[in-house]
Design a protein around this nucleic acid. Structure first.
Lengths: 216, 216
DNA sequence: ACATTTATCGAACGTTCGTGCTATTATTTA
DNA sequence: TAAATAATAGCACGAACGTTCGATAAATGT
């Protein structure tokens, strides 16, 4: 039972790399077996079906999200600093994970949004959780007095999420090396609009969004 | 030469529908032939290769963008009203075109961002043009005094584009029927931030939900 | 109407896809 | 170390993939 899990992990590492470039559908058992140094049937036995492999890949991505995005961020104080940590880790996690082809989760979201089944469910649920985590972090910042009380946390989470999608596209399709910085600028603009000014120290002293039209 | 173009158009109509659900790679010649009532080889002769078919599909999407998004919007006065028209048409164009599976262009962007070749180039170029059109529209609004002079048009175009991506994901993966309204709220928030708030003179024109952060 | 171009079909090609089986090795347990 | 179990390889399968080619039907120009 030990050797199996070991090779399974090694397989998944390759699978993540391939899926990030070719997508979950383009991740084929033949090429994955070849790249892993296994026979097709030997590899197949680990996952039982292609769908099982796809689900395992998504689970692997969830693990990476946890390790690279959320766990480091949860060490920050709840509120704006934690929210900022999440967003910053999130924007650069594919680079940290050495995934050559960008975020598998969002690519899978666009790939499977019309293909009902367990993969779509897992992706959908994972991204829903991510959105909830973002919204929760926004609410913690509101409770800490770092964001306005009338902030719509779900709306703001949607907007932050959109920036991530935009950054991915600019970086990968346009090859823009400044895509993440551009997304961070937009993110800070969003925070500023809701009262989360740039000083991480104290945020309760500047009450309104009055003078903040075109700073930056 | 007449009959050929006619069936080619009919084929492309089916191809658009399939590609919007299955993606450009999932659009297969066999199923497209079956759905079009043609033989595989008969259909194949129209495009010469699968890549040719994919390029034709993208060109078809470009045409739809022109017909459903830009041409109607260009009849509005340059400035904010034209920008608003573009964004509103854009957000609902897949419904207007009766495409069952969402925007082909953005799906193709995520699908082909790591697959170099003519398809990627065409998608990339098309979305670049779209971004430029957005930025140009923003600049026209600036020149008309409807947006602040220090507005970064490219940055704002990026943010609007991101909202489109987010709305697509919410609508198609989460099945959220209010995704487009949510994106419109965020869009109006962006305009407000740059000085393009709802003009009180024509407040009855459209639902004035931009100012209220906690709507819905 | 006929000749010619154009459009479409049918069949087959080599590959690759995912997925079963049956051996045959490795590895773990007793 | 022997027995039991887990892990992998080999082989084959039906289906679908994109693609080619020669034959046939339909549309077009004269």
């Amino acid at each position: 039972m030990r050797k199996g899990q070991q090779t399974r992990t090694a397989i998944l590492e390759q699978a993540l790399a391939i899926a990030s470039q070719a997508g979950l559908a383009g991740l084929t058992i033949g090429t994955l077996a070849e790249r892993s140094g296994l026979s097709k049937s030997g590899l197949f036995a680990h996952f039982g079906s292609k769908e099982g492999l796809q689900l395992a890949v998504i689970q692997g991505v969830r693990q990476l999200y946890s390790d690279l995005v959320f766990q480091p961020a949860i060490q920050q104080q709840p509120g704006l600093s934690r929210l900022r940590a999440i967003v910053e880790n999130w924007l650069k996690w594919t680079a940290s994970a050495k995934l050559p082809g960008g975020c598998i989760m969002t690519a899978a979201a666009y790939e499977f949004d019309d293909w009902p089944g367990p993969v779509r469910e897992l992706v959908s649920q994972s991204l829903r959780e991510l959105r909830k985590t973002l919204a929760r972090s926004v609410r913690l910042a509101m409770e800490a007095g770092q964001l306005h009380q009338d902030t719509d946390a779900d709306q703001l989470a949607f907007e932050i999420f959109s920036l991530y999608l935009g950054a991915q596209l600019d970086a990968r399709l346009f090859g823009d090396p400044h895509a993440y910085e551009r997304a961070l600028v937009a993110f800070e603009n969003l925070l500023e609009r809701h009262g989360g000014g740039e000083t991480p120290a104290r945020a309760g002293d500047r009450p309104a969004r009055a003078a903040a039209s075109g700073a930056h």
